[in-house]
Nucleic acid binder design. Sequence first.
DNA 1: AAAAGCCCCTGGATGC
DNA 2: TGCATCCAGGGGCTTT
Length: 271
Amino acid sequence: MPELPEVEVTRLSFADRIAGARILTVRMGKPLRWALGCDPLELTGRLVVQVRRRGKYLLMELDAGLLLLHLGMSGSLAFAESLPPAGVHDHFEMETDRGILRLHDPRRFGAVVFVEDESSAVAQKLLGKLGMEPLGDAFDLDAFLAGLKRRDSPIKQVLLSGDVVVGVGNIYASEVLFASGIRPTMPASRITRPRAERLWCAIREVLARAVATGGSTLRDFTSAEGQTGYFQLEAMVYGREGQPCRICGTPIRQLRQGQRSTFFCTVCQKS
DNA sequence: AAAAGCCCCTGGATGC
DNA sequence: TGCATCCAGGGGCTTT
């Protein structure tokens, strides 16, 4: 479900409220992608210092240790003083003196993993090879160009892989390629500098705008305050196969790349 | 080193 | 109504 904007919207919706909270109890439901990595009882009494984000991971910094949270395809977080009784798809729940944090994740591709610190082997396995953050100053244009130059696979899949730039998932990959007029099948190494620069801008702008409008809600995304997003109302190509391009009217085409759907306009995205 | 496939899992939509 | 099939916002792991 969630790409970078949804993860960031989630973070913004509860980070300030949970900072300073003391953990009272932790309950695990059915297994997530990985085991927690510690006895839930060991977390009792620890303090939440802050919640950061790296790619699509949330990093909940404790006074001792770090919880890595990932929402997978179908995960969402809720944080409130009280919540309805936990359902069958609520697989992680952390009660604090400021409220209850709950992960709802039907498909269980998500994860909650405890590590001692960010440099631990487990943390490095998950975070170590992530690409540049697209928002803020860390997203260097020359480094982005260099990253594309050394990859021969289609640009759509390079964006999705997350090792050049993080956070661009399946919806936004199609959207940013449309915004910059690039064919999704174009080998990354063959993208000209001016087009790559347009792509770099589009990634920043589209993701920032999606964060500002509360993320996408294709199916069931809500922030930890329960708000749905509005971005899907303005998708230019994603999920619009056969419908007219909003710019030129040509029917939007769909194809499969690496078992994922891609949407594009044959006229607006010629190279 | 890079690229391509395979999975993990559940639920909703569609078709017969 | 029931059942089979396909698809879904991710990404680590194994194999080429």
